[in-house]
Simulated scan of single mutants.
Amino acid sequence: MINPDAKRVVRIQLRLTLLAMLLGLVAADAPLNAAMSVLLGGLCAIIPALVYIRIAGTLQRGDPAAIMRSHYRAAAAKFILTLLLFGGVLLFFKDLSVPGLFGGFIAATSAYWFGLLIKN
C-alpha cells in the first residue's frame, strides 16, 4: 500500500508539471517544443519519486536500521535514475528547450514543499 502522503505529493507534482506546461504553451516562442520540454523535465522528477516510493515503501514497520537502509537505497536509486533520465533526454531529444526542461523539473520538485503546506 502506498502512503497517502506520498500519493498526495505525486499528484501535486503532476498538477505543477501540467501548470508549467500550460505556461510554456502560452509564453514560449515555440510552444509545443517548450511544453514537451517541460513535460520531460517533470517526468524526470516524477518517475524517480515513484521509484523511491516503491523501494522505501516496502518496509513500513520493523527495525529502524532496516527502514533507514531501505530509504538510503531508495534515495540512491532516485538519484541515479534522475541522472539517467536527464542524460537520456538531453541525448535523444535534440530540439529541446533546456530552460523548459529544467523549469518542468523545478516545478515538479517544488511539490515536496507544497506538500508540506497543502493538506488535501
Results as ranks from 00 to 15, higher is better:
residue 31 P to Y: 03
residue 49 A to Y: 09
residue 28 A to V: 13
residue 113 W to I: 14
residue 71 H to A: 12
residue 43 L to S: 04
residue 6 A to E: 13
residue 1 M to E: 15
residue 29 D to T: 13
residue 83 L to G: 07
residue 66 A to R: 14
residue 23 L to Y: 13
residue 10 V to W: 05
residue 11 R to S: 14
residue 91 L to R: 03
residue 70 S to Q: 14
residue 25 L to N: 06
residue 85 L to A: 12
residue 107 A to S: 05
residue 71 H to Y: 05
residue 20 A to E: 06
residue 66 A to L: 14
residue 42 G to N: 07
residue 92 F to R: 10
residue 15 R to I: 11
residue 47 I to F: 09
residue 61 R to P: 00
residue 64 P to S: 06
residue 99 P to Y: 08
residue 13 Q to F: 09
residue 15 R to P: 00
residue 99 P to T: 10
residue 43 L to D: 04
residue 93 F to Y: 12
residue 70 S to C: 04
residue 52 Y to D: 00
residue 107 A to G: 02
residue 44 C to G: 13
residue 3 N to L: 02
residue 101 L to G: 03
residue 115 G to Q: 11
residue 97 S to H: 10
residue 41 G to N: 08
residue 95 D to K: 07
residue 44 C to K: 06
residue 23 L to S: 15
residue 67 I to E: 00
residue 116 L to S: 13
residue 23 L to C: 15
residue 53 I to T: 15
residue 46 I to A: 11
residue 25 L to S: 08
residue 56 A to I: 00
residue 108 A to T: 02
residue 74 A to P: 11
residue 36 M to E: 10
residue 110 S to D: 00
residue 33 N to E: 13
residue 41 G to V: 07
residue 43 L to V: 09
residue 35 A to R: 12
residue 58 T to P: 01
residue 16 L to S: 12
residue 1 M to H: 15
residue 18 L to E: 01
residue 11 R to K: 15
residue 116 L to M: 14
residue 5 D to I: 05
residue 88 G to C: 09
residue 20 A to H: 06
residue 114 F to T: 08
residue 106 I to D: 00
residue 4 P to D: 01
residue 84 L to S: 09
residue 88 G to V: 06
residue 77 A to E: 06
residue 110 S to A: 12
residue 8 R to T: 09
residue 84 L to N: 03
residue 25 L to Y: 07
residue 76 A to I: 09
residue 22 L to E: 02
residue 88 G to S: 12
residue 75 A to S: 13
residue 95 D to F: 00
residue 80 I to P: 04
residue 113 W to P: 00
residue 111 A to M: 05
residue 118 I to S: 09
residue 6 A to K: 10
residue 95 D to Y: 00
residue 114 F to Y: 14
residue 18 L to W: 01
residue 37 S to H: 09
residue 55 I to R: 03
residue 57 G to Y: 07
residue 100 G to A: 01
residue 53 I to M: 14
